[in-house]
Design a protein around this nucleic acid. Structure first.
Lengths: 195, 195
DNA sequence: GTTTATTATATGACTAATCACATATGACTA
DNA sequence: TAGTCATATGTGATTAGTCATATAATAAAC
């Protein structure tokens, strides 16, 4: 139900149409919540039925745009959701399934699997680094420092995970190359990191 | 379509019933691919229709168990999937949506949001650490070193991400406590980690 | 003046997964 | 011997999301 609340979040800033919302998602949260256009419209219909948003007077433009604004009920629903607890969810990871069953592959193929993934992760990390640096230059243009801060936090999140991800891949690839099928010694890693 | 391939993966070791598969998932991959019992049965039916698995002679036990074995087609489908490329997927993260819209909360509430999540992540990390250490003791009992190695790799993955995750939370909480809404300086972090 | 891109909203078909529930037997236990 | 637990397979209803496609006007490009 997060799309629902993300829409409420955007509408809490100002009224937007479905089309505007799609652009808002693409411009700011697509790296952790890609939103499908048709799903946005369906969710808007559902939110309207629940009385959390309302369709304002139809606007100008081709194909009549329909801006929505958040209701008082919608605002309180948003607040409630924001402060509710967020247990870490189990994110399904198809790549880890491949890793798990990589034992059924030849050693070379398993290596290729990991190496290719490392290349993709590196590329993704450098994309996010670029995005981060680009965002930094927009600091002055931000509506207010809090909004900018939390927006940057979500990018920092992605970038914070990258080094650990890549070190894991490096270590796995290194062991596979040496034909060394021993588990990593994580003792100092864990002692240092999890305190 | 990963559940499908995960099932093929398990069946590539030996024939299993739906019930067996559910236990196999719960015992080994639930931390990155929780499998719903009813979905396992539905997927088995689908795999059967596609000719990737076959229902063996009904077995003993209460309520007739139905073991499935993988076909030659199924094996080649599994291999093909394993060696296909795995682009990093966009994992939806509801917590990041909360962070993104935390600017609409009071500072204290935003802090509580992050602090509570940090506690949950710490607990999860220590759970996985325990699981990792417990798994280590089973090394001798493993069917073969490769299977054990790749199984451990999936746990190493989770544990590799934890320190970065927690450092991100620490840094965000620290800045919020000081009322310091400046973005983090990630220059050395990135320089060191992404090479 | 015709094509093309952009704006803008929507439905239909499908897929993966979740949740609740129905069913039924063998084995143990109070 | 009654109750409960573990074994074991399934269906129905619903949800969230994806993909393809339909529609249509306006503005710009050629």
């Amino acid at each position: 139900m997060s799309l629902k609340h993300a829409i409420l979040g955007f509408l809490s800033y100002k009224p937007l149409s479905g089309y505007d919302l799609k652009k808002a998602f693409d411009n700011s949260v697509r790296h952790f919540w890609p939103a499908d256009q048709s799903q946005i419209y369906r969710t808007l219909a559902q939110l309207t039925a629940e009385g959390l948003v309302e369709r304002a007077a139809d606007g100008e433009g081709p194909r009549d745009r329909h801006p929505y604004h958040i209701t008082a009920t919608g605002l309180s629903e948003l607040r409630q959701w924001l402060v509710a607890s967020s247990p870490p969810q189990d994110d399904r990871n198809p790549f880890l399934i491949k890793v798990f069953f990589a034992a059924t592959l030849g050693g070379g193929e398993a290596l290729a699997l990991l190496a290719e993934h490392r290349a993709a992760i590196r590329e993704q990390a450098s994309l996010f680094t670029g995005l981060y640096q680009q965002m930094l230059t927009l600091r002055e243009a931000a509506p207010n420092p809090e909004v900018f801060f939390f927006s940057m936090l979500t990018l920092e999140y992605v970038l914070s995970l990258a080094p650990g991800y890549l070190r894991w891949l490096d270590s796995a690839i290194d062991r596979l190359e040496r034909g060394d099928y021993t588990p990593a010694d994580l003792s100092e890693h864990l002692a240092g990191g999890l305190r």
